[in-house]
Nucleic acid binder design. Structure first.
Length: 420
DNA sequence: TCTGGGGTCCTAGGACCC
DNA sequence: TCTGGGGTCCTAGGACCC
């Protein structure tokens, strides 16, 4: 059966979240600013229309902000995360499989569903009704085309925010209109190189020889070419992959010149990173620390350095990380600089207590389900963790990840999700 | 003067081993 | 001393994403 993906993307997400709680600003221009109110990280529709660029430093656009009376909000990530959860919850009710791709985007598997366009419209309406967030929906046989469809849904208001791109002719017509740089996976650098070779539109790229693309560029871009031609190379990943690194870093509002202050900042990041790590129920084996001065001012003396250490044992303990951070910091710190940013990174994760077994329903196969019982027993003794279910070799392929607090799954077999 | 904070994947090159 | 062909693992850097 041909696959059908939908990409649901919240419109101007951060700005829309802020507007939800400020009805008076419903049609007013709104921006959300980065950590120290340093630059613009989100813009409402009205602001985009003014030509204010994403990532613009605030001091450069201050005039524009005042001139148009643009409302400025400092970012409130707790709010955005909460709103995101609400949106995703609606999507999970509407589609059999959902991959949460980012805080404001999700891929849906709509394979085998009749009248996908109508379903897409319903989904959009539901999200709007339940959360107040407006979304665009793009439907297509591959993720890359679904992204493109979503792009069209936003670029052309006449679409009403929903574009069905299952038809090959429609795909080609749209691709002819879209610049190659708009394609998912084609960034600034690739855009330049592709343009130099005369590939200017998405259609040009789609019609390029995949072998040549692989040779001259990369396997990643080759995949993109195939995806543009309706050949699905990227699967839906409804099970959130385990993190491979955790980073905590900040730019400082004001330059830091005192050693103690810098160390204090790093200690805070270490603590936060350790917290995130424990949330993942993971242990890290490598800690990295970096500090640097400003990079934009050519008159400033530049310095940047980092150091890392392999811990003697996998660890998720804040104090142990702090102890390991000290000597790293001492080794890279140089006095006399005005530090602008610092951060820590945890990597080389080690996953403790991971058990694997085949999954059978006890009522169907008592003998073989004993393995599962054993595993659940072990997990239960830990008290908390993540349970992964995956079914392979059946159609459709299926997997999911659920956090649980024991003994949630052992006492109630009915709470185990049905696979077929 | 003032410029975000996360992440992922791939590749090339070096070290090292048999 | 010279000569060969694999292979793995690690790291740094570059590209991309939101």
């Amino acid at each position: 059966m041909d696959k059908v993906f939908a990409l649901v993307d919240c419109n101007n997400f951060y700005a829309s979240c802020e507007k939800l709680f400020r009805p008076d600003l419903k049609h007013a221009p709104v921006v959300v600013l980065s950590n120290n109110d340093g630059c613009v990280v989100a813009r409402s529709r009205e602001v985009k229309a003014l030509g204010l660029k994403m990532g613009a430093p605030v001091f450069q656009v201050r005039n524009l902000i005042e001139q148009h009376n643009i409302a400025c909000f400092s970012s409130n990530y707790a709010l955005y995360a909460d709103m995101s959860n609400r949106v995703m919850t609606v999507l999970e009710q509407e589609a059999p499989q959902v991959e949460i791709y980012s805080i404001d985007e999700a891929f849906l598997d709509l394979t085998g569903i009749d009248a996908v366009y109508d379903v897409a419209c319903q989904i959009k309406a539901k999200v709007d009704q339940y959360t107040g967030i407006t979304v665009g929906v793009g439907v297509a046989p591959t993720k890359t085309l679904a992204k493109l469809a979503n792009h069209a849904a936003k670029a052309y208001p006449a679409t009403g925010g929903v574009v069905d791109l299952t038809d090959r002719e429609r795909q080609r017509r749209l691709m002819a209109l879209v610049e190659v740089g708009e394609v998912w996976g084609v960034g600034r650098r690739l855009t330049k190189h592709l343009q130099a070779r005369g590939l200017r539109t998405a259609l040009d790229l789609a019609d390029a020889d995949p072998k040549m693309i692989r040779r001259e560029f990369s396997v990643v871009l080759e995949r993109t070419v195939r995806e543009l031609n309706g050949i699905s190379c990227l699967e839906l990943e409804s099970m959130a992959p385990t993190k491979q690194q955790i980073v905590c870093s900040r730019s400082f509002g004001e330059r830091i010149t005192q050693k103690g202050e810098l160390k204090e900042a790093l200690a805070k990041y270490v603590a936060r990173a350790a917290e995130k790590l424990r949330q993942e129920t993971c242990l890290a084996q490598v800690l990295q620390v970096f500090i640097r001065t400003g990079v934009f001012n050519p008159n400033e003396r530049h310095y940047s350095n980092s150091a890392s250490v392999k811990l003697s044992a996998p660890c998720d303990d804040t104090r142990a990380f702090l102890a390991a951070m000290e000597p790293l910091f001492e080794s890279i710190y140089r006095p006399g600089f005005r530090y602008a940013k610092a951060g820590v990174m945890l990597t080389d994760f080690y996953q403790p207590n991971t058990y694997q077994t085949d999954l059978f329903y006890p009522e169907e196969d008592r003998e073989r389900s004993k393995n599962l019982m054993d595993v659940l027993d072990k997990i239960n003794r830990q008290g908390r963790g993540h349970l992964f279910f995956a079914a392979q070799g059946v159609t459709p392929q299926w997997s999911m990840k659920r956090e649980f607090l024991s003994p949630a799954y052992t006492t109630n077999w009915n709470s185990l999700p049905k696979v077929y």
